[in-house]
Amino acid sequence: MALSVSTGQDIDLRVQPVAEVLDRVERSLQVRLLPNTAVRKRRSVGARTERDTWVRIERRLLDKITSQGWNGTECAACLEGVAQPAWQGCVVWRDANGSVLWRADETDLLPDPPVGNAILSRAPGLLDEWWEALNASLDALASHKTSRVATPDTVIITQALVSESIRGVFSGDFDTTVDRWMPGHADLNWANVTAPVFSLFDWEDWGNAPLGLDSASLWASSLAVPALADRVRHERRSDFESRDGKLMTLFVCSKILGPYAHPEDPRLEPARRMAEQVIDQLEGG
């Protein structure tokens, strides 16, 4: 049966009808979704279930699914030492017209609400224990081995992508070659972590990435709150002091300062200042 959601390129699940999708997920997972708990985003919908679990449903075009598959949340279940909701199961199907895949993953509930939006505008007041748990999870994640490659923003991260992103915005006499690649979450921002109890979720895009990508991403989403951005840099200073961490700082700054920069983005000036400092350090080193 064809689904009611349009299968074209320009889809926003916040406004598109998804009733038939939800019905299919309920039948397949044999669970009832609670409508008043639904969270709708551009390409995903999530809801609590009657058995006190969470189901996240995502729509993705076939050309956005790499040869490694589309099972990040499932694969992340084997990561020891990383605070995350336990994975319970999933259902995957191909849309009637063949150009889209849908995937629904069921996990345990989050221990607490997400800290906030992807980009914060005020300090969240996190305890020292929260930062300790963040550090422990990121360090544990980096110690694992995987054949997966991270896909931030659904794009495979490669050396070419890193170099092109940095060179497209910044000039300077420095090498953009990444030395160390290791497992990373690849979508670390304030919408994907919980507090006061720390947990990291939304694992669709995790895989090998340059050292420091996660730390730089969390820092970039903190820039509108200077004290919070400074705390991220302090807690993850070993990443930021490394050459790869400096490159990842420029990589995330290139997204803020690049051709799609918003003139009223409060992160513009701090990103510009940090980029200048990092380029000076790279050229001097």
Rank of each mutant, 00 (worst) to 15 (best):
L188G: 04
L223D: 10
R103G: 03
V55N: 13
S99N: 10
T194D: 03
G207T: 02
A123M: 03
G72R: 00
G284I: 02
G258R: 08
L282M: 05
D239N: 08
T176K: 11
E80D: 15
A186G: 03
P85Y: 07
F240P: 11
S44V: 06
W130Q: 07
T49D: 07
D139F: 04
H262S: 14
L257N: 11
E283H: 01
V169K: 05
E20G: 15
S137K: 10
T194S: 04
N71A: 10
H234A: 02
A227I: 08
V55H: 08
D112W: 02
L282K: 08
D23E: 14
L13D: 06
G245C: 02
G212M: 05
A118N: 03
E132A: 03
R237P: 01
V193C: 09
W219K: 10
D128M: 01
Q68Y: 02
V45F: 00
L33H: 14
V92C: 08
L110W: 02
H144P: 15
V193P: 07
R56Y: 00
G172K: 12
A160G: 04
W131A: 03
N189K: 07
R122E: 10
T177M: 12
P210K: 00
V18N: 00
R43I: 10
T146M: 15
L120G: 09
F170Q: 03
L120Y: 02
E26S: 11
P114G: 10
A271D: 06
K246P: 11
D175K: 09
D205M: 04
L13N: 05
G69H: 07
R42I: 03
G285E: 14
W219V: 13
A19C: 13
T158F: 00
V100L: 03
F170V: 09
I156H: 01
D52Q: 13
L33S: 13
E204P: 00
P270D: 08
A133H: 09
L61K: 09
V193D: 01
T176N: 12
P196F: 01
L161F: 02
T177H: 12
S217L: 02
E164H: 06
L223W: 06
E50V: 14
A118G: 06
D205C: 06
E50Q: 11
E276C: 14
E106Y: 11
R60F: 01
E276M: 12
K64I: 05
L101H: 06
P259Y: 10
E20S: 15
V91A: 05
D239I: 04
L282T: 07
E129H: 09
M182L: 13
G212P: 07
N192C: 02
N117G: 13
L127D: 13
A195R: 04
R32D: 15
A220Q: 05
K64F: 01
T249F: 03
R40Q: 06
R40E: 02
V232S: 05
I166E: 01
H144C: 15
L250Y: 08
S143H: 12
F170K: 06
A76W: 11
